[in-house]
């Protein structure tokens, strides 16, 4: 059963089409990345998933049923633009947001303390939000979206504006939540993050779906035709017929192979001519796939 399903969803604001006939589904228990450059329609899609706006046409289903506000208590949402009450104490704020999700004040307070410990910000608990650093505020917001232990976690650009240490902490937490069996959906414009974390992705561009599916499955659709190698000695093996183009950075080469070519013959020749310390057939990165797909489309 898909936890989230969008079917032919379309949303236009005045003249701008934000989302055009977008369809995808998110299976239960998956770690789903919603990808796309800025302004591609990620936030618009997410807002329709949680009923903040309604699609002009098409349908949105949550938990296998047509959208119903009652199910929002099963969703944790972290908006792209963070917002907390500046003058309010962190603990009061968390309890308040927890209560809005149907929690009892005592339970909310207990969980808030536990989470603050987990996110290493216990010292922030009695403070007012305005006294906190931006990174800390973001962690509070992150906690606020998780207090009610949602089955589906939707995060819009969760890592933006965080330093590497905190970004890793958040990533690890998301991975843990995923392991607990929760479905995680997050959007980002940084494709490298998705590659590490997600098992399923959906790539959109200008409101249109570009790619969707399992990460491995998508990657396998694209040929492994790039080789990275580090060597010492004669570089003449780069003229091998399987090489379409090559860049040699003084002993470190990036090679693009011809379509259908086998890297093994290149390796054989290289061994005979130079001392090889590294030879790797690279998977295409999402970024390359994106540029290739979108570039192809815009040309067409």
């Amino acid at each position: 059963m898909p936890i989230v399903e969008l079917q032919q969803v379309r949303k236009a604001y005045d003249t701008k089409i934000a989302v055009a006939d977008l369809s995808f589904r998110i299976e239960q228990g998956s770690m789903f990345g919603l990808l796309g450059p800025n302004g591609s329609g990620k936030t618009s899609s997410i807002r329709m998933m949680i009923g903040m706006t309604l699609p002009d046409s098409g349908t949105v289903s949550l938990f296998g049923q047509p959208f119903d506000r009652k199910n929002l208590h099963r969703v944790g949402y972290l908006p792209e633009e963070r917002g907390l009450y500046k003058k309010m104490k962190v603990i009061d704020q968390l309890v308040f947001l927890g209560q809005l999700h149907g929690l009892d004040a005592i339970v909310a307070s207990k969980r808030a303390h536990a989470w603050c410990e987990r996110m290493e910000i216990t010292e922030a608990i009695p403070k007012k939000t305005e006294e906190l650093s931006k990174g800390m505020q973001q962690k509070i917001q992150f906690i606020a979206s998780l207090l009610h232990e949602p089955e589906l976690i939707i995060m819009d650009e969760p890592f933006s504006g965080l330093d590497p240490v905190n970004a890793t902490l958040l990533q690890d937490t998301l991975v843990d939540l995923h392991k607990e069996g929760r479905t995680v959906l997050f959007s980002t414009h940084r494709m490298d993050q998705v590659e590490k974390l997600c098992d399923n992705i959906c790539l959109i561009h200008r409101g249109h779906l570009v790619l969707s599916g399992g990460m491995q499955e998508i990657k396998s659709r694209y040929p492994k035709n790039r080789v990275q190698m580090v060597f010492e000695g004669d570089a003449s093996f780069l003229d091998n017929p399987v090489v379409e183009s090559a860049k040699n950075y003084n002993g470190m080469a990036e090679i693009k192979l011809r379509e259908g070519a086998d890297a093994q013959s290149l390796l054989a020749e290289a061994i005979s001519k130079a001392r090889i310390s590294r030879f790797e057939v690279m998977e295409p990165t999402l970024e390359e796939i994106f540029i290739e797909t979108v570039g192809g489309r815009t040309d067409a």
Binding site: I50, M52, R69, L72, H73, V75, Y77, P79, E81, R82, G83, L84, Y85, K86, L97, L100, H101, Q141, A144, S145
Partner: peptide
């Protein structure tokens, strides 16, 4: 200005 509404609107009308 505080943008809290977006968090709130995810649960309430």
């Amino acid at each position: 200005t505080s943008r809290v509404f977006e968090v709130l609107l995810a649960t309430i009308r």
